[in-house]
Amino acid sequence: MSKLIIGRYIPGDGPVYRMDPRGKLLATFIFIAIVFLANNWQTYAIACGFCLLAVIATKLPLKTFLQGIRPLVWLILFTALLQLVFTTGGHVYWHWGIFSITSFGLVNSIFIFLRFLMVILISTVLTLTTMPLEIAAGMESLLKPLKYLHVPVEQIALVMAIALRFVPTLMDQTVKIMNAQRTRGVDFNEGGLIQRAKAFVPIIVPLFIESLNVALDLSIAMEARGYQDDKPRSRYRSLHWSHYDLYNLGFFVLLTVLLIIFREH
């Protein structure tokens, strides 16, 4: 579990770290949308170039990103492979039953592969350089307009922040319960799929009860510390736009324009 890099924050001080989480969230969403504008070699080269720039701007070692991609590499390759053998048109290199490798298929699968890679890289840039708490704060700020529709944005944000805070605590709890069950003779690594799944019931039940207890205790502690859900609260972490965010969003506007100019119409 600890090897999983997706969704993990690594402290650092590159320019990306100084950007506002709202800007980074927006940029990530923009990128995921405009990556679909790319449809020829020029536009893919431009998008890849931007992606590499973003990775370099984190000042994190490239190895970290490769680690992030590794668990997903099979999924990407599988998708690319499907694209490769099922796309028809162009010059046929190889043919067997319904499968064929064509020049169109080859180009398409490479595009799909790159698109996948770029989306993962850009989201990894976001999560590696932004604390989960900041992402939650950014989301809250971006969703503020929903308050006029009576969506309790602030409460949802607090729930998100608390959920994030308790992930490691419940992980520890899981390990404890697993060890406790092991001492009672439960083997989590033996037997078929069904048997293994069954072995997890004695973990899930105590974990569930424990999290209910935590929730009860926490709600009392929060009330004792003066939390009222209908009262205005000030914020310790206030978000500030800086010139870094101007660069950030400026870059992505530029990228959009370039992609629109160079794409095949």
């Binding site: 604390m131 989960p132 708490l133 922040a161 608390i162 994030l164 805070r165 926490l218 502690a221 929060m222 510390r225 003066g226 939390y227 009222q228 009262k231 609260r233 000030s234 914020r235 310790y236 972490r237």
Partner: peptide, 15 residues
Amino acid sequence: VGATVADDVAFGLEN
């Protein structure tokens, strides 16, 4: 409550 030590101390003040 907070995700970091400083955030937790801030919680009561925020309230």
